[in-house]
Protein backbone atom coordinates (compact mmCIF):
# COMPACT_ATOMS: atom_id res chain seq x y z
CA UNK A 1 0.00 0.00 0.00
CA UNK A 2 1.27 3.47 -0.94
CA UNK A 3 2.25 5.25 2.30
CA UNK A 4 0.09 8.25 1.33
CA UNK A 5 -3.00 6.02 1.45
CA UNK A 6 -2.69 5.76 5.24
CA UNK A 7 -4.06 9.33 5.43
CA UNK A 8 -7.03 8.25 3.31
CA UNK A 9 -7.57 5.23 5.58
CA UNK A 10 -7.88 7.53 8.60
CA UNK A 11 -9.88 10.16 6.71
CA UNK A 12 -12.49 7.68 5.48
CA UNK A 13 -12.84 5.81 8.79
CA UNK A 14 -13.03 9.04 10.84
CA UNK A 15 -15.48 10.90 8.60
CA UNK A 16 -17.70 7.83 8.32
CA UNK A 17 -17.59 7.50 12.12
CA UNK A 18 -18.73 11.11 12.51
CA UNK A 19 -21.58 10.50 10.07
CA UNK A 20 -22.58 7.36 11.99
CA UNK A 21 -22.51 9.14 15.36
CA UNK A 22 -24.65 11.99 14.04
CA UNK A 23 -27.23 9.77 12.35
CA UNK A 24 -27.55 7.45 15.36
CA UNK A 25 -27.86 10.46 17.70
CA UNK A 26 -30.72 11.87 15.64
CA UNK A 27 -32.47 8.50 15.29
CA UNK A 28 -32.31 8.03 19.08
CA UNK A 29 -33.44 11.60 19.79
CA UNK A 30 -36.58 11.22 17.69
CA UNK A 31 -37.41 7.66 18.76
CA UNK A 32 -38.48 5.94 21.96
CA UNK A 33 -34.80 5.87 23.00
CA UNK A 34 -34.67 9.65 23.53
CA UNK A 35 -34.79 9.15 27.31
CA UNK A 36 -31.18 7.85 27.05
CA UNK A 37 -29.86 11.23 25.83
CA UNK A 38 -30.14 14.18 28.16
CA UNK A 39 -29.04 17.74 27.23
CA UNK A 40 -25.51 17.08 28.48
CA UNK A 41 -25.17 14.01 26.22
CA UNK A 42 -26.73 15.86 23.28
CA UNK A 43 -23.93 18.42 23.43
CA UNK A 44 -21.19 15.85 24.04
CA UNK A 45 -22.23 13.71 21.06
CA UNK A 46 -22.25 16.75 18.76
CA UNK A 47 -18.85 17.86 20.06
CA UNK A 48 -17.42 14.38 19.44
CA UNK A 49 -18.85 14.22 15.90
CA UNK A 50 -17.57 17.73 15.14
CA UNK A 51 -14.12 17.04 16.52
CA UNK A 52 -13.84 13.79 14.52
CA UNK A 53 -14.84 15.57 11.28
CA UNK A 54 -12.25 18.27 11.95
CA UNK A 55 -9.50 15.68 12.53
CA UNK A 56 -10.65 13.83 9.38
CA UNK A 57 -10.40 16.98 7.24
CA UNK A 58 -6.94 17.81 8.59
CA UNK A 59 -5.81 14.19 8.01
CA UNK A 60 -7.09 14.23 4.42
CA UNK A 61 -5.05 17.32 3.60
CA UNK A 62 -1.83 15.38 4.25
CA UNK A 63 -2.31 13.21 1.18
CA UNK A 64 -2.53 16.25 -1.09
CA UNK A 65 0.53 17.54 -2.89
CA UNK A 66 -0.59 21.15 -2.40
CA UNK A 67 -3.07 21.28 0.51
CA UNK A 68 -3.11 25.09 0.53
CA UNK A 69 -4.78 25.03 -2.91
CA UNK A 70 -7.58 22.79 -1.61
CA UNK A 71 -9.99 25.72 -1.96
CA UNK A 72 -10.18 24.82 -5.67
CA UNK A 73 -11.70 21.40 -4.94
CA UNK A 74 -15.26 22.65 -5.31
CA UNK A 75 -14.81 23.68 -8.95
CA UNK A 76 -15.97 20.44 -10.56
CA UNK A 77 -19.23 19.51 -8.82
CA UNK A 78 -20.70 18.66 -12.23
CA UNK A 79 -18.69 15.47 -12.70
CA UNK A 80 -16.18 14.88 -9.88
CA UNK A 81 -17.22 12.77 -6.89
CA UNK A 82 -14.26 14.19 -5.01
CA UNK A 83 -15.65 17.72 -5.39
CA UNK A 84 -19.05 16.50 -4.21
CA UNK A 85 -17.49 14.74 -1.22
CA UNK A 86 -15.74 17.97 -0.15
CA UNK A 87 -19.02 19.89 -0.54
CA UNK A 88 -20.91 17.38 1.61
CA UNK A 89 -18.25 17.25 4.33
CA UNK A 90 -18.30 21.07 4.51
CA UNK A 91 -22.11 21.14 4.72
CA UNK A 92 -22.06 18.37 7.34
CA UNK A 93 -19.46 20.23 9.44
CA UNK A 94 -21.43 23.47 9.14
CA UNK A 95 -24.64 21.76 10.29
CA UNK A 96 -22.88 20.26 13.32
CA UNK A 97 -21.57 23.71 14.24
CA UNK A 98 -24.99 25.34 13.84
CA UNK A 99 -26.65 22.52 15.75
CA UNK A 100 -24.16 23.02 18.58
CA UNK A 101 -25.09 26.71 18.75
CA UNK A 102 -28.78 25.90 18.86
CA UNK A 103 -28.21 23.45 21.74
CA UNK A 104 -26.82 26.35 23.75
CA UNK A 105 -28.93 29.28 22.61
CA UNK A 106 -32.36 28.08 21.55
CA UNK A 107 -34.97 25.51 22.46
CA UNK A 108 -36.82 25.89 19.14
CA UNK A 109 -37.75 22.38 18.09
CA UNK A 110 -38.49 23.39 14.47
CA UNK A 111 -34.90 24.67 14.01
CA UNK A 112 -33.51 21.52 15.63
CA UNK A 113 -35.67 19.21 13.49
CA UNK A 114 -34.64 20.98 10.30
CA UNK A 115 -30.97 20.81 11.32
CA UNK A 116 -31.43 17.17 12.21
CA UNK A 117 -32.97 16.24 8.85
CA UNK A 118 -30.48 18.28 6.82
CA UNK A 119 -27.61 16.83 8.89
CA UNK A 120 -28.76 13.26 8.22
CA UNK A 121 -29.05 14.03 4.49
CA UNK A 122 -25.55 15.59 4.50
CA UNK A 123 -24.10 12.61 6.41
CA UNK A 124 -25.68 10.08 4.03
CA UNK A 125 -24.67 12.22 1.03
CA UNK A 126 -21.10 12.27 2.32
CA UNK A 127 -20.91 8.46 2.42
CA UNK A 128 -22.57 8.14 -1.00
CA UNK A 129 -20.10 10.62 -2.55
CA UNK A 130 -17.19 8.89 -0.82
CA UNK A 131 -18.34 5.60 -2.38
CA UNK A 132 -18.65 7.32 -5.78
CA UNK A 133 -14.98 8.34 -5.63
CA UNK A 134 -13.85 4.72 -5.42
CA UNK A 135 -16.35 3.18 -7.81
CA UNK A 136 -14.18 3.68 -10.87
CA UNK A 137 -14.34 1.61 -14.06
CA UNK A 138 -10.56 1.36 -13.97
CA UNK A 139 -10.46 -0.29 -10.52
CA UNK A 140 -12.72 -3.36 -10.72
CA UNK A 141 -12.25 -4.44 -7.09
CA UNK A 142 -13.70 -1.12 -5.89
CA UNK A 143 -16.35 -0.81 -8.58
CA UNK A 144 -18.85 -3.06 -6.77
CA UNK A 145 -21.52 -2.81 -4.07
CA UNK A 146 -18.78 -3.81 -1.58
CA UNK A 147 -17.46 -0.22 -1.51
CA UNK A 148 -20.66 1.51 -0.28
CA UNK A 149 -21.43 -1.52 1.92
CA UNK A 150 -18.05 -1.27 3.61
CA UNK A 151 -18.43 2.49 4.14
CA UNK A 152 -21.98 2.32 5.53
CA UNK A 153 -21.03 -0.57 7.84
CA UNK A 154 -18.05 1.37 9.21
CA UNK A 155 -20.38 4.29 9.83
CA UNK A 156 -22.96 2.19 11.66
CA UNK A 157 -20.46 0.20 13.75
CA UNK A 158 -18.36 3.17 14.88
CA UNK A 159 -21.52 5.22 15.43
CA UNK A 160 -22.95 2.53 17.73
CA UNK A 161 -19.64 2.07 19.58
CA UNK A 162 -19.14 5.77 20.23
CA UNK A 163 -22.76 6.37 21.25
CA UNK A 164 -22.81 3.42 23.61
CA UNK A 165 -19.57 4.28 25.26
CA UNK A 166 -21.12 7.50 26.52
CA UNK A 167 -24.66 6.31 27.12
CA UNK A 168 -24.89 4.48 30.46
CA UNK A 169 -27.23 1.70 29.26
CA UNK A 170 -24.61 0.77 26.65
CA UNK A 171 -24.34 -2.87 25.76
CA UNK A 172 -25.84 -3.88 29.09
CA UNK A 173 -27.99 -6.96 29.69
CA UNK A 174 -31.16 -7.06 27.58
CA UNK A 175 -30.03 -4.22 25.32
CA UNK A 176 -31.21 -4.44 21.71
CA UNK A 177 -27.94 -2.85 20.65
CA UNK A 178 -25.86 -6.01 21.03
CA UNK A 179 -27.76 -8.14 18.46
CA UNK A 180 -27.76 -5.21 16.00
CA UNK A 181 -24.04 -4.57 16.54
CA UNK A 182 -23.20 -8.28 16.14
CA UNK A 183 -25.12 -8.57 12.90
CA UNK A 184 -23.37 -5.50 11.45
CA UNK A 185 -19.97 -6.74 12.64
CA UNK A 186 -20.50 -10.13 10.95
CA UNK A 187 -21.56 -8.36 7.73
CA UNK A 188 -18.49 -6.12 7.96
CA UNK A 189 -16.21 -9.18 8.25
CA UNK A 190 -17.93 -10.82 5.26
CA UNK A 191 -17.43 -7.63 3.17
CA UNK A 192 -13.76 -7.57 4.22
CA UNK A 193 -13.38 -11.21 3.17
CA UNK A 194 -14.85 -10.43 -0.27
CA UNK A 195 -12.55 -7.40 -0.63
CA UNK A 196 -9.57 -9.53 0.39
CA UNK A 197 -10.28 -12.36 -2.03
CA UNK A 198 -11.12 -10.06 -4.97
CA UNK A 199 -8.15 -7.72 -4.39
CA UNK A 200 -5.08 -8.99 -6.25
CA UNK A 201 -2.47 -7.61 -3.89
CA UNK A 202 -4.16 -7.82 -0.48
CA UNK A 203 -1.99 -8.84 2.44
CA UNK A 204 -2.74 -12.11 4.25
CA UNK A 205 -1.33 -10.66 7.50
CA UNK A 206 -3.84 -7.80 7.33
CA UNK A 207 -6.69 -10.22 6.64
CA UNK A 208 -5.83 -12.49 9.58
CA UNK A 209 -5.47 -9.43 11.86
CA UNK A 210 -8.85 -8.19 10.65
CA UNK A 211 -10.48 -11.56 11.36
CA UNK A 212 -8.97 -11.92 14.85
CA UNK A 213 -9.74 -8.33 15.93
CA UNK A 214 -13.19 -8.50 14.31
CA UNK A 215 -14.04 -11.68 16.22
CA UNK A 216 -12.75 -10.07 19.43
CA UNK A 217 -15.02 -7.09 18.71
CA UNK A 218 -17.88 -9.57 18.58
CA UNK A 219 -16.85 -11.33 21.78
CA UNK A 220 -16.28 -8.31 24.04
CA UNK A 221 -19.85 -6.90 23.79
CA UNK A 222 -21.18 -10.47 24.21
CA UNK A 223 -19.32 -10.70 27.52
CA UNK A 224 -20.72 -7.30 28.53
CA UNK A 225 -24.21 -8.28 27.35
CA UNK A 226 -24.13 -11.54 29.33
CA UNK A 227 -22.83 -9.81 32.43
CA UNK A 228 -19.44 -11.61 32.54
CA UNK A 229 -17.63 -8.28 32.05
CA UNK A 230 -19.10 -5.28 33.91
CA UNK A 231 -20.87 -2.71 31.74
CA UNK A 232 -18.42 0.02 32.78
CA UNK A 233 -16.39 2.64 30.97
CA UNK A 234 -13.05 0.72 30.71
CA UNK A 235 -14.64 -2.28 28.96
CA UNK A 236 -16.71 -0.03 26.65
CA UNK A 237 -13.65 2.08 25.86
CA UNK A 238 -11.71 -1.11 25.09
CA UNK A 239 -14.50 -2.17 22.71
CA UNK A 240 -14.40 1.18 20.92
CA UNK A 241 -10.61 1.06 20.47
CA UNK A 242 -10.83 -2.55 19.28
CA UNK A 243 -13.53 -1.64 16.79
CA UNK A 244 -11.62 1.38 15.46
CA UNK A 245 -8.52 -0.78 15.07
CA UNK A 246 -10.36 -3.55 13.22
CA UNK A 247 -12.09 -1.00 10.95
CA UNK A 248 -8.75 0.66 10.14
CA UNK A 249 -7.27 -2.76 9.28
CA UNK A 250 -10.37 -3.46 7.16
CA UNK A 251 -9.83 -0.19 5.29
CA UNK A 252 -6.15 -1.06 4.76
CA UNK A 253 -7.35 -4.30 3.10
CA UNK A 254 -9.59 -2.13 0.90
CA UNK A 255 -6.64 0.01 -0.22
CA UNK A 256 -4.14 -2.84 -0.60
CA UNK A 257 -6.59 -4.60 -2.93
CA UNK A 258 -6.10 -1.68 -5.32
CA UNK A 259 -5.21 -2.75 -8.83
CA UNK A 260 -6.06 -1.08 -12.10
CA UNK A 261 -7.43 -2.61 -15.22
CA UNK A 262 -5.57 -1.34 -18.27
CA UNK A 263 -2.27 0.32 -17.39
Amino acid sequence: MDSDYIFLVFFTVLSQSAAGIFILREVMLYSSYNYMIDKHLRIITLLIAGLIVLIAIITASFHLGKPLQAVHTLRNLKSSWLSREILFILIFSGIILLYLFTEFFTESSSIKISLSISGIIAALGLIVCMSGIYMLKTIPVWNTFLTPSSFFLTSALTGISVMFIIIPAGFGKGSIIYPVFSLLMILSLIVSAFLYFTGETSSVVLFITRLVTGLMALLVPLLIYSGIIPNKMPSRLFLLLLLLFTEIIGRCIFYTGFYKSGL
Binding site: D4, H63, L64, G65, K66, P67, Q69, A70, H72, T73, R75, S80, L82, I133, L136, K137, T138, I139, K260, S261, G262, L263
Partner: peptide, 16 residues
Protein backbone atom coordinates in the same frame (compact mmCIF):
# COMPACT_ATOMS: atom_id res chain seq x y z
CA UNK B 1 -1.83 26.43 -10.70
CA UNK B 2 -5.11 24.64 -9.96
CA UNK B 3 -3.80 21.10 -9.37
CA UNK B 4 -3.74 20.06 -5.70
CA UNK B 5 -1.87 16.79 -6.31
CA UNK B 6 -4.69 14.52 -5.09
CA UNK B 7 -3.79 11.97 -7.82
CA UNK B 8 -7.43 11.06 -8.39
CA UNK B 9 -6.94 11.52 -12.16
CA UNK B 10 -4.32 8.76 -12.14
CA UNK B 11 -6.86 6.34 -10.62
CA UNK B 12 -9.43 7.26 -13.25
CA UNK B 13 -7.18 7.09 -16.33
CA UNK B 14 -6.98 3.55 -17.79
CA UNK B 15 -3.78 4.40 -19.71
CA UNK B 16 -1.55 5.58 -16.84
Amino acid sequence: ELCIGCRYCSWACPYG
